[in-house]
Nucleic acid binder design. Structure first.
Lengths: 137, 137
DNA sequence: ACAAAATACTACTTAAAGGTAGAATTTAAA
DNA sequence: TTTAAATTCTACCTTTAAGTAGTATTTTGT
């Protein structure tokens, strides 16, 4: 019952970049060191974020990364979706195929409220909300 | 952001058994077939549940499994704990070591409410509450 | 032109969860 | 006593996430 490492890293990376937008670009080296994320793993994640149009990368000597759009327009759920973290939303918590109000699994009623609360939180929280330096270890 | 297969299976198995307590014992064969859980994987899980004192097993010809205590006294959280699903409760959602009200990660404030809601749900829901046949696929 | 510093790409290795196989053990009925 | 049907145990295989390595490419300053 937790996020994938990749997703956790992605959120921390994006939140950190959002908080350093004035400095124009963040390099993989800087991100890796300040967030203590393995360099090679980080660059792999950055490629995903670039492909997801969340990040723009500038190659070459003074290159680096920056957000592809305003921090206020990037929600946590949008990030998670690119790591397949919430695609199973419609699936029930017990993994018994689809689970809705007509055909409920035994935990359905208890799970509905917490699930919707998490969902709403991820949907309404943007990078601007969490932009800070509190992503270090 | 979902439970391990083992945990999902465990909850379904225990919920099903709770609903069939009158019939005294459930066999691995019956459980595997009605819940469509791979037989060999199921027996592996049953061993864990036996070791966790949630299940009592009777070996030999007419053997099988039954709850080790009243369904009303077994909470979901107790089940999950044996699969290390909520031991990371105190860890923050972003995996940045300990995360409390003094030293918060950037998502701390948003995560507190949903987290406690899930926790409470898992703590207060017992096998009796969810005991039913709605565990099939 | 060249070197330095950055990202991109491809492939490989490791760790953990998920799942499978087969033999051993236990019990009860015939 | 034998057989059948059940759990237990140990070892193995497969899949996926996590992490590592090396090379290629791009860009800028000298």
């Amino acid at each position: 019952m937790q996020l994938l490492n990749s997703s956790k890293y992605a959120i921390r990376i994006l939140g950190y970049i959002a908080n350093h937008e004035t400095q124009q670009l963040c390099s993989a080296k800087e991100l890796s060191e300040t967030l203590t994320i393995p360099y090679k793993f980080l660059t792999k994640i950055m490629m995903k974020l670039v492909n997801a149009d969340l990040i723009i990368s500038i190659r070459g000597r003074d290159g680096g990364y920056k957000l592809a759009k305003p921090a206020s327009s990037i929600t946590i759920i949008e990030i998670l979706n690119h790591f397949n973290e919430f695609s199973e939303q419609k699936q029930c918590i017990l993994g018994i195929g689809l689970c809705d109000s007509r055909k409920k699994c035994a935990l359905h009623d208890q799970w509905v409220k917490p699930k919707n609360m998490i969902k709403k939180m991820f949907e309404t929280t943007t990078l601007e909300d969490i932009s800070s330096d509190n992503f270090k270890q």
